[in-house]
Computed example of a mutant assay.
Amino acid sequence: MTNYGEVLHELRVGKQMTLAKTAGDIVSASFLARFEKGETNISLEHFTRILQRLNVTPLRIFCASQQFFCASV
């Protein structure tokens, strides 16, 4: 099973965003850290808002999680 939290972590770190700044008013930084470690699940609404904050499309995170090459995402 794909761990979207790990993929999100890699994208977040690559964009030099802190847990606190990424989580902001969406979820707590500790919750986001637990999600990235695969210790908890996140609602689709919260996940989508975090992706928007990181300027990452759902397609991009899906491609990264499946190790697909997706041009221009």
Rank of each mutant, 00 (worst) to 15 (best):
R49L: 12
E45G: 03
M17C: 07
H9N: 09
A33Y: 06
F31N: 02
L11I: 14
F68M: 13
T48R: 10
F62G: 04
Q16G: 07
K37N: 15
K21V: 13
F47N: 01
L59C: 11
S65E: 06
G24F: 01
A23K: 04
F35I: 08
F68V: 14
V13P: 05
V7Y: 00
Q66C: 10
A29Q: 08
L19R: 02
Q16M: 09
A71P: 06
A64W: 01
I42G: 00
T22G: 03
G14D: 07
F35K: 02
H46P: 01
L54P: 01
F69H: 14
R49K: 15
M17Q: 09
A29K: 07
E6I: 07
R53I: 09
V13I: 12
P58F: 06
H9S: 12
S28K: 10
Q66V: 05
L11H: 02
D25S: 06
I26M: 04
G24H: 05
M1G: 09
T2S: 12
V7P: 00
H9T: 08
L32N: 03
G5F: 01
E6A: 15
A20G: 01
I26H: 08
S72N: 15
F68Y: 14
S30F: 10
S65K: 05
D25P: 01
L11V: 08
F69L: 09
H9P: 03
E6H: 03
V56G: 02
E39H: 11
A29L: 04
Q52G: 09
L8P: 00
Q66S: 04
F62M: 13
R60P: 00
T2A: 10
K21T: 13
E10T: 14
V13K: 13
Q66P: 03
I61S: 03
F62Q: 12
R12A: 00
Q16H: 14
G24L: 03
K37S: 15
M1Q: 08
R53P: 00
A71M: 09
R12D: 04
S43E: 06
P58K: 11
T18F: 02
H46D: 09
S28E: 09
T40F: 11
E6K: 14
V7K: 00
G38K: 10
V73F: 04
L11K: 03
F69Y: 12
C63F: 06
F69M: 12
E45V: 05
R34Q: 15
Q66F: 07
F68I: 12
H46T: 11
F69G: 05
L54G: 01
R49V: 08
T57H: 06
F47R: 01
L11F: 05
G38Q: 11
I26E: 04
G24V: 00
K21S: 15
R60I: 03
F69C: 04
